[in-house]
Design a protein around this nucleic acid. Structure first.
Length: 444
RNA sequence: GGAGAGGUGGCUGAGUGGUUGAAAGCGCUGGUCUUGAAAACCAGUAGAGGAGAGAUCCUCUCGUGAGUUCAAAUCUCACCCUCUCCGCCA
């Protein structure tokens, strides 16, 4: 019994309570449990919704009992100060009795709440109705192909072949120093990275994105609120000594930046562009893409993040996709846009688009961008809200929606550039838009 | 790493056991005044959960959690966080 108590206390300290308002998941479960079941099934996720409904019911029943007793207690306490010794002694006795009763009910309520919260935290964000239904990435839908694939008068090479020859990428040394799935970027590849960063910030700055270099180590509380702990926790590097986690994307630290924050409605959308190194364990991908720098434990990325009005999130999501396409079009790299299906969405997303760049050396498209509308899934856990200035609406505080999207995943963009701009003589032409940033038009 | 100070509403900041969910100021919203604006004045203004058709009512929240007590922002303990000084350091 002591142990269980301690456990409850510990859990309470670690789990941030999810905020529940009108349109929250529990209200949906109360109104239409089947709908929730169907939606999460589309994501291949199983959570015992009936159990949650049952716990919710019990919880509410007990809560009402507790509240009734508290009300009684408060009522007596209000005049306790004014009454005389005889009656006072009597009242105190009553209250002692009441308290004993109260504590018992509270104890069972506590256990119930713990169980309830564990379950409800496992429910992923529900996919929008418009999202194509499918069980894995094979169900993703190609929306369009953009840009003309270059006609090569020779057989285009794989990026590593070119990069190693010029000395742009060194994975061999990295393997010695750090192990597999690491790489040294050298010479012009470094200049390319710096140019891409500046280029991206220039474009995004015009749209009001605030440039950020965020911390790459964050607390469990922040990581959990961003929705990355429940499933896919294996993917994250954990610094146990310090209780910190390495971010796999700037999204995690950008989103958490406004934890417990309140926006003024007129300041929305609030857009950030974060440049950071990203760390991923790639735990589930043994033997997949082992060569080169396509899939590595560490890479740099510029990520867009926006907090927006809930009614505007679909629009903002579309805008993010537009920005991604604009970046790719300006770079003149052919790509295609995918509408990601329900089974491939991941926990936080209600909708998601990927961009895959054409890689002529590999003769295939590879993912370079991804943008998600996470609606209020993350912001509920983060407790990031906005205040409406309209005095006539009843609920003036509400959760903002959060959108994230890749501007450039540098490593993969380098790959795309190298493969698309390679020349017969083994050199690489610099994309027009980067020439000025690079101070050269060819990499030899 | 050593020493100290502190966490109260959107913000600043009072409050050391009993109508204090919380003074005051700022901010915000509405109104009066004004040709308009500012100023001035008046009024309103925390969040969450629950019951109810609704008016409304109840409960919780003063960093988090536990405890003492009939009663905790106020007392005790643990944890978290922030700040200042010293040391170390790109």
């Amino acid at each position: 019994m002591e142990k269980l108590r301690e456990e409850i206390i510990n859990k309470k300290n670690n789990i941030e309570k999810i905020n529940m308002t009108d349109n929250s998941i529990i209200n949906l479960i109360r109104k239409n449990p089947q709908f929730v079941k169907d939606k999460i099934a589309l994501k291949n996720v199983k959570v015992d919704i009936d159990k949650i409904a049952e716990l919710d019911n019990e919880k509410r029943r007990l809560t009402q009992e507790v509240e009734k007793l508290r009300a009684e207690q408060n009522k007596v306490n209000k005049y306790m100060d004014e009454i005389k010794s005889e009656e006072r002694r009597e009242r105190i006795k009553d209250m002692q009795e009441l308290k004993k009763n109260l504590k018992e009910i509270e104890a069972s309520l506590n256990i119930m709440e713990m169980e309830y919260e564990k379950l409800i935290y496992q429910i992923p964000n529900l996919p929008f109705d418009e999202v194509p239904i499918g069980k894995d990435e094979s169900g993703n839908i190609v929306l369009r192909e953009v840009g003309e694939k270059r006609e090569f008068e020779f057989k285009p090479k794989d990026y590593m072949e070119i990069a190693e020859k010029i000395g742009l990428i060194d994975t061999e040394s990295a393997a010695e120093v750090s192990g597999s799935r690491f790489g040294y970027l050298k010479k012009e590849s470094v200049l390319l990275e710096l140019s891409l960063i500046k280029f991206a910030f220039d474009i995004l700055g015009k749209e009001g994105f605030i440039p950020v270099i965020p911390p790459v180590m964050i607390k469990e509380k922040a990581m959990r609120a961003m929705g990355y702990m429940e499933r896919g926790g294996d993917e994250i590097y954990h610094l146990e000594k310090d209780g910190l986690y390495l971010t796999g994307t700037a999204e995690q630290s950008l989103g958490a930046m406004h934890m417990d924050g309140i926006f003024n409605e007129k300041d929305l959308p609030k857009r950030y562009a974060g440049f950071s190194t990203c760390f991923r364990r790639e735990a589930g991908s043994y033997g997949k893409d082992t060569r080169g720098i396509l899939r590595v434990h560490q890479f740099d990325k510029i990520e867009m993040f926006s907090f927006c009005h809930p009614e505007k999130s679909t629009e903002e999501h579309k805008f993010f996709l537009e920005m991604e396409e604009k970046l790719m079009q300006t770079l003149e790299v052919p790509y295609r846009v995918l509408n990601i299906c329900t089974g491939d969405l991941g926990d936080p997303a209600a909708a998601k688009y990927d961009i895959e760049a054409w890689m002529p050396g590999q003769g295939t498209y590879r993912e370079t961008h991804s943008t998600s509308n996470t609606t209020d899934f993350q912001t509920r856990r983060l407790n990031t809200r906005f205040k409406s200035n309209n005095p006539h609406i009843k609920q003036r505080m509400n959760f903002v929606h959060a959108i994230n999207g890749t501007a450039f995943a540098i490593g993969r963009t380098l790959i795309a550039i190298i493969e698309n701009y390679q020349q017969k003589d083994g050199t690489i032409t610099v994309p027009d838009v980067l020439k000025e940033y690079m101070g050269m038009d060819r990499i030899k």
